[in-house]
């Protein structure tokens, strides 16, 4: 009798890339609903635009590269990149901003480097940084929560697709500065200004939605950690670095520096720590290295936020640390069993 030959181990594999990516998408769902709740349904349109662009662009390049298109699309990694771009871009940004950013992320950053597993830079963050540098104006169009009540879905569609404002409204009237923007512009205007008088309290953060959003990312991220999908060392590194440094400066001078809680809850801290920096392809790969990678992202974030030219810093911090990954990997190899301590 004859049998098929195969190499050991013969046991069935336990997981798949698609399952991992699907769980990441699942963990993002609550935050997407919250985004829509606080900043309008523009986020749905952003995500729709981003995902369709991502899928079409990826299919196109895969075809050009002579790869199995469906098999690669099935890994869902393009969808994760697209959804991350969709939620990172302001809810009222024009349609071409999302399309351009996603196209750049998928085609240039991911596929031209060899596709899934071979890209050096986090595709979502590279796409985001590309947009931020190229179109700073459009990248700040965060809707003001209060202004949304009078808005119709059709108004938002018209705004995104033809950049037409409803009657008697100005772009300044419907958008608002994010809390991090407020700090940056205030300090830029007057380096000696007192941040304690600015509307940056925790209540404001929650009233404007940012606090709730951060919490939802935090909860979704914890679920991913519990599921074994993301490495806990990276978010721990980022959050601990950010908290430690901001606490140091805050207790040194609370009038110039904002509180640690503000840094943890404002901007992209939580989404970045749990969903962006944890992209395994572009992060350090050894457990110790992952903590270093995360910690350095936290440090860079604080540096850029407080002394850099941009109000938030997740994209730049992640991209900078992506460059450092080979070095981190080299120096953080774990001790192999049986080798000298």
């Amino acid at each position: 009798m004859n049998f098929t030959w195969a190499s050991a181990p013969h046991i069935k594999p336990r997981d798949s890339v698609s399952k991992i990516m699907f769980k990441v998408l699942l963990a993002l769902l609550p935050s997407i609903f919250l985004l829509a709740w606080f900043f309008g349904c523009g986020v749905y349109i952003n995500i729709l635009l981003a995902t369709s662009t991502a899928l079409i662009a990826e299919a196109m390049v895969l075809k050009l590269r002579g790869r199995a298109v469906l098999k690669c699309l099935k890994d869902l990694s393009a969808l994760v990149t697209a959804v991350l771009i969709g939620i990172a871009i302001p809810t009222l940004a024009p349609w071409w901003v999302v399309v351009l950013g996603t196209f750049f992320a998928i085609v240039i950053v991911k596929q031209l480097y060899g596709g899934l597993g071979f890209n050096l830079f986090n595709p979502a963050m590279a796409g985001y940084a590309f947009l931020l540098i190229s179109f700073p104006q459009e990248m700040t169009a965060w809707a003001m929560p209060e202004s949304l009540n009078v808005w119709l879905f059709s108004d938002i569609i018209r705004l995104i697709f033809s950049v037409q404002l409803p009657d008697a409204m100005t772009i300044d009237g419907i958008t608002m500065a994010t809390p991090l923007d407020v700090v940056k512009t205030q300090v830029a205007m007057n380096p000696y200004s007192d941040v304690t008088v600015l509307p940056l309290g925790i209540e404001t953060l929650f009233a404007q939605g940012w606090g709730w959003l951060s919490l939802s990312y935090f909860v979704g991220g914890l679920w991913l950690v519990q599921q074994g999908i993301i490495a806990w060392q990276i978010p721990l590194g980022i959050l601990s670095a950010l908290a430690l440094i901001s606490a140091g400066f805050y207790f040194y001078d609370a009038q110039t520096y904002t509180s640690p809680l503000f840094h943890l809850l404002a901007g992209a801290t939580m989404v970045g720590a749990f969903f962006i920096a944890t992209d395994p392809v572009t992060a350090a790969t050894a457990p110790k290295g992952r903590f270093v990678f995360g910690f350095m992202i936290g440090v860079l974030m604080y540096l850029i936020r407080v002394w850099g030219g941009y109000p938030d810093a997740m994209a730049f911090a992640v991209l900078l640390m992506n460059i450092a990954v080979p070095v981190i990997d080299y120096y953080t190899q774990p001790r192999v069993f049986g080798t000298r301590r």
Binding site: I20, D75, L116, G117, P280, V281, A283, T285, R290, P334
Partner: peptide, 14 residues
């Protein structure tokens, strides 16, 4: 069943 995909460096093996 075991159709191979690129390594995503997830580190599960480690």
């Amino acid at each position: 069943e075991a159709e191979m995909q690129p390594c995503i460096r997830c580190g599960e093996c480690a």
